[in-house]
């Protein structure tokens, strides 16, 4: 059976759409079922349902205030839904949020760490909050920050800060890593480095849920994406399938795409090396 299972997994990863039957996956690691959340009179999340496959990078796209962060926070056990059900790796979030928190890694949009601790001390402190012991240097080396183990948070560049917050999210070797806008405010070089890091973490076996405003990022990283608008999912599929669906409607881009983008120009001029 395990052999058959891994073969199936293998097949699924090559043909993501094959595992989907009416939007239901085989062995989903996240199940969100009709989640609703109201703030005063505003429906922040208005009946969201989706599933995330083990080992994929799942993107959540949508304008500001669409309900992405609220949805993610409900999955993380940081916020209670008014109704609906969220199951993370077989654990009902509402029933046992602590168990969920112990198997997920979280990187929040706004990250702040203590200014007066060294990076290695920050990582060590977070490991204690998961009641595990880690080698802080090893964790930092996973995000390429081992050389800055004695630096303070305030001394880091934007990209380094973001990588530190990912490192901190990795201390418990999470089954699922939640990244909330991981590259917002980063320069193109740093952004690409974070992308490489995210792919590496996925290749090491974690499932990743990320929110972003950058379509390029979604296209580059995500196996599947959900587009959220006004608290509802209005589209969910692989990036390629969504593009194909749009083209099938006879859509033509306003400006014909050239072979290179301005991003490529910038990177070609300034180099791909990181500046931190």
């Amino acid at each position: 059976m395990p052999a058959l299972y891994s073969r199936l997994e293998d097949l699924l990863s090559k043909h993501p759409e094959a595992g989907q039957v009416n939007n239901t996956l085989i062995d989903p690691v996240i199940i969100a079922n009709d989640i609703r959340k109201k703030y005063e009179d505003i429906d922040a999340v208005n009946g969201i349902s989706f599933q995330v496959r083990r080992g994929e990078i799942f993107g959540m796209l949508g304008p500001n205030g669409a309900g992405k962060t609220t949805t993610v926070e409900i999955l993380e056990g940081m916020r209670n839904a008014d109704s609906g059900e969220a199951v993370i790796d077989g654990i009902n979030v509402k029933k046992d949020p602590t168990a969920v928190k112990s198997i997920i890694g979280v990187q929040l949009q706004q990250n702040a760490f203590f200014d007066n601790l060294k990076l290695s001390e920050i990582v060590g402190m977070y490991a204690q909050l998961y009641e595990t012991k880690v080698d802080p240097i090893e964790v930092l080396s996973r995000v390429g920050l081992e050389g800055r183990k004695n630096s303070k948070y305030a001394q880091l560049s934007g990209g380094q800060k973001q990588r530190l917050s990912i490192a901190v999210a990795l201390v418990n070797d999470p089954v699922i890593l939640f990244l909330d806008e991981p590259t917002t405010g980063l320069d193109p070089q740093a952004r690409r480095q974070v992308w490489a890091l995210v792919k590496k973490i996925r290749d090491d076996g974690a499932t990743i849920v990320l929110t972003t405003h950058y379509m390029e990022e979604a296209e580059e990283l995500c196996d599947r994406i959900a587009v959220i608008e006004s608290g509802k999912i209005i589209a969910i599929d692989t990036p390629n399938a969504l593009i194909d669906q749009l083209l099938a409607t006879g859509f033509k881009p306003e400006k014909r795409l050239r072979e290179a983008t301005l991003d490529d120009v910038f990177l070609n001029l300034t180099g791909r090396d990181l500046r931190d």
Partner: peptide, 13 residues
């Protein structure tokens, strides 16, 4: 700064 919020996302809290 959101430090406490980040801590809230851990099982110990």
């Amino acid at each position: 700064q959101g430090v406490l919020r980040r801590l809230k996302a851990t099982p110990i809290g």
